[in-house]
């Protein structure tokens, strides 16, 4: 029996698109997820419960919530974590969410993330890359005009998501917008949301996100700093490595 449980709080849609926004480089996924929740008015439909998770709850409007929750409507399910997930439990967390998503017959999984670049502050535009779980999904990515990440390493929850989805045959994509490594990056989150719109047709207004960008950077400092610690433990810097091709 899994040591992590998904507790459902509402009617769960069948055949939805499942999104993931977890703390990672530039907090791109979390910032994008938070904006999606606000703009689309997504409600909490499920949450994770486990003794493997740290003894931590998030208080919202005076009430306790799990730090890993799923928001949604009749078409979308969005898994989001408000604190970095430790390297020790990341596999169990992702396996549980993916297996649950499969039980709800999700038609596509999309992980929202970032790709750090040097001298990010000098970048005039931020490119979005994608990696896919199968040749068919990779073709769709390319057909939609998103540049595919063809070679390299990927570290973190999005890496597990892509691999597991590939193993169990669920179409999955990881979208990565160029971003700061260690600073919250709302501009990058806006770009990844544009990529999501291209891939799924799920359009959201990003004007407010850009307008509030500086406040978000200020607010997200603590989560970013704790995320850095977990990224170090996961050897995130390996994403910079040049791969050795074994064919």
């Amino acid at each position: 029996m899994s040591e992590i449980k998904v507790i459902e709080k509402a009617q769960i849609p069948i055949g939805a698109v499942m999104l993931f926004g977890f703390p990672d480089v530039g907090l791109v996924g979390v910032i994008a997820a938070s904006h999606l929740i606000e703009e689309l008015g997504l409600a909490e439909i499920a949450y994770l419960d486990s003794r493997l998770m740290p003894p931590l709850i998030v208080l919202h409007e005076g009430l306790p919530h799990s730090s890993i929750r799923v928001f949604g409507n009749d078409k979308i399910m969005l898994a989001v974590s408000e604190t970095p997930i430790s390297a020790e439990i990341i596999y169990q967390v992702m396996d549980t969410l993916i297996e649950w998503g499969r039980s709800k017959k999700v038609k596509l999984m999309v992980s929202l993330s970032g790709m750090p670049i040097e001298d990010r502050q000098d970048a005039k535009e931020l490119k979005v890359f994608a990696a896919a779980s199968s040749p068919e999904t990779l073709k769709t990515v390319k057909d939609k005009g998103i540049e595919a990440l063809m070679e390299g390493y990927m570290v973190g929850p999005q890496a597990i998501m892509l691999m597991r989805a590939s193993q169990i045959g669920i179409p999955a994509i990881t979208l990565m917008a160029q971003c700061f490594l260690n600073y919250p990056d709302p501009e990058s989150a806006a770009e990844v949301l544009k990529g999501l719109a291209t891939m799924t047709g799920m359009k959201v207004d990003i004007a407010k996100l850009l307008e509030k960008g500086e406040e978000i950077r200020l607010k997200a400092r603590d989560v970013m700093q704790r995320t850095q610690q977990e990224m170090t433990k996961m050897k995130k810097s390996q994403e910079y490595d040049l791969p050795v091709y074994v064919s």
Partner: peptide, 22 residues
């Protein structure tokens, strides 16, 4: 408030960045 910062030491120089939003 304490800002986020980063430091890189190269052979020739030390490069420090500090995030100073707002």
């Amino acid at each position: 408030m304490r800002p986020l910062s980063d430091m890189k030491v190269t052979a020739r120089e030390v490069i420090m960045t500090v995030d100073l939003p707002l």
